[in-house]
């Protein structure tokens, strides 16, 4: 089974706070981490490899320092990693990102299974995976909490929807996005970490993927960010103290006045 896991390096979002006075983002000490959801995708890829045989290749698009994220993934047990990095990729929206990743999977010789996390915690779009599946014309199952394989060689996926969980069967190749319910990601092993340090990580740019500059990055994006601003501040808050009974009575009175 050829398994590809797509990951993203993101800032640890909880550290990104707006300064209430200057309305600028406080950035001191923001670490870069592997998008937390992608760790579940990687774990699932490793588990499928362990049960079905095969290889796990980790793919990311980002600046040169995104190599750190790939090394971390190798330390968790991935067999190989490729970094997609090129000045021309900068400013890519979800479509241009999906196209670049899809081309990279193609260059890898295709994949039977592609795992992604549910979404990235910086952009929160959850769009790149489904777009990749469309571009590659392969099956898609979103929001998986369980993946298994039946005797027909198809994947059976239990996935979350608003009403509950549906079981669906998808032909391979397939792209599956996973929720954090699916597994418990492992910790890095000492052996793999040692190997991860030395493992060469190829860097593929525009020319390697056979794309032209107009198809990627900002130029290849269909959407454009025109404005970035702080979220509207909430109204003034009141804080009440007192006995539980007093507080409850006051609150109930207030809630009744509202309606």
């Amino acid at each position: 089974m050829k398994i590809v896991v797509c990951i993203k390096q993101v800032p640890e979002t909880q550290d990104v706070r707006l300064d209430p006075v200057t309305h600028t983002l406080k950035r001191e000490g923001i670490k870069s981490i592997i998008n937390p959801f992608d760790l579940y995708a990687l774990e699932e890829g490793l588990r499928v490899k362990e049960s079905q045989g095969g290889t796990v290749t980790v793919l990311t698009m980002g600046p040169p320092q995104a190599e750190e994220a790939l090394r971390e993934a190798l330390g968790l047990g991935a067999d190989a990693a490729v970094l997609l990095s090129d000045r021309a990729f900068a400013g890519a929206d979800t479509w241009a990102t999906a196209l670049t990743l899809a081309k990279a999977v193609e260059k890898l010789g295709g994949a039977d299974l592609i795992f992604t996390g549910k979404q990235a915690i910086d952009g929160d779009t959850a769009q790149v995976g489904p777009m990749m599946a469309s571009i590659m014309n392969i099956s898609l199952a979103s929001w998986a909490r369980k993946v298994s394989f039946n005797t027909a060689g198809k994947a059976e996926v239990e996935r979350l929807l608003d009403h509950g969980y549906d079981a669906v069967e998808v032909d391979l190749p397939a792209l599956i996005s996973v929720t954090k319910e699916i597994n418990e990601p492992r910790l890095p092993s000492f052996k793999a970490k040692l190997k991860a340090k030395k493992e060469p990580i190829p860097v593929w740019g525009l020319a390697d993927l056979g794309l032209n500059a107009a198809e990627v990055g900002l130029a290849g994006s269909f959407t454009q960010v025109v404005k970035v601003f702080p979220p509207p501040a909430r109204g003034t808050s009141e804080t009440w103290e007192g006995s539980p009974q007093d507080l409850a009575a006051r609150l109930w009175q207030r809630l009744q006045e509202m309606t």
């Binding site: 800032p11 979002t13 909880q14 990104v16 706070r17 707006l18 983002l25 915690i121 910086d122 952009g123 929160d124 269909f222 959407t223 454009q224 960010v225 025109v226 404005k227 970035v228 601003f229 702080p230 979220p231």
Partner: peptide, 16 residues
């Protein structure tokens, strides 16, 4: 909202 709701972004689809 983006970045966990810490910033808001306005986005257009200008050409398609």
């Amino acid at each position: 909202p983006a970045f966990g709701g810490n910033i808001m972004a306005t986005i257009i689809t200008p050409r398609t």
